[in-house]
């Protein structure tokens, strides 16, 4: 039986926090890519594609993240894929992130005036060119603040991955609590660490909001 000092607790939590950061980054980047793809097919697409994407967004925004992770974690083995908690968490969070980001970005693209589309079409641009040269550069500026803001939700979402057994910050907190019987200290430290990751992101998002306000209006 070894004693845990406060430093031991903090040190072990910091080691686990690396996984929180890694999972957040992976889910955010992959989710962003999938979200961008969905945005493209939705903006270009026929009514059926639009309906499909809308259903996808509704599904992920209308169900708990925990259920999404459970379905990936328990569902994929049924079709013969053996998934580790890491793969299940990454996949689940990627889908979750893509649904939210595509919805955020849709609003940004729709806020670009119809005249911009028409003017670029009258110059003979096709859809890809319109997107690439006219719409996305403008939409991007509006999209940055809410996107950074949503990254905080992704970081917090990774805590749920602890429930399917992925050892990140929250799971490490539970394990250390079971060893030390000091839940107050341990969960306090866990909360502080999440705060230290998320608060700078929140501040950055707010800063960007102030900076880009004149663009949006």
């Amino acid at each position: 039986m070894s004693e845990f000092s406060l430093w031991d607790i903090v040190y072990n939590l910091l080691l686990a926090a690396r996984w929180t950061v890694l999972l957040s980054l992976t889910a955010f980047v992959l989710g962003g890519l999938v979200g961008l793809l969905l945005l493209m097919v939705r903006t270009a697409g026929n009514p059926w594609v639009i309906r499909l994407v809308r259903g996808y967004v509704e599904l992920f925004q209308g169900t708990p993240l925990l259920m999404q992770l459970f379905i990936v974690f328990f569902g994929l083995p049924l079709i013969g894929l053996d998934v580790s908690p890491w793969v299940a968490a990454t996949l689940g969070l990627t889908l979750f992130t893509s649904a939210f980001l595509t919805e955020i970005w849709r609003g940004c693209v729709e806020s670009i005036g119809k005249g911009q589309w028409e003017a670029s079409a009258s110059l003979g641009m096709n859809f890809t060119q319109q997107m690439r040269y006219i719409v996305l550069p403008q939409a991007l500026r509006i999209a940055v603040p809410p996107t950074v803001g949503f990254s905080v939700q992704v970081v917090k979402g990774t805590a749920v991955a602890s429930i399917i057994g992925f050892v990140e910050l929250t799971k490490a907190g539970t394990m250390i609590t079971n060893a030390t019987y000091e839940p107050f200290t341990v969960y306090g430290c866990v909360a502080v660490m999440y705060f230290l990751i998320c608060y700078p992101l929140s501040l950055f998002a707010r800063h960007l909001e102030g900076k880009f306000r004149h663009v949006a209006r």
Binding site: S162, G173, P183, F184, Y187, A191, F195, C198
Partner: peptide, 17 residues
Amino acid sequence: LIRNTPFLVQLFFIFFG
């Protein structure tokens, strides 16, 4: 504080802490 920490951790802190 609340907006920058996960709900699960808040729950654990309240119930166990």
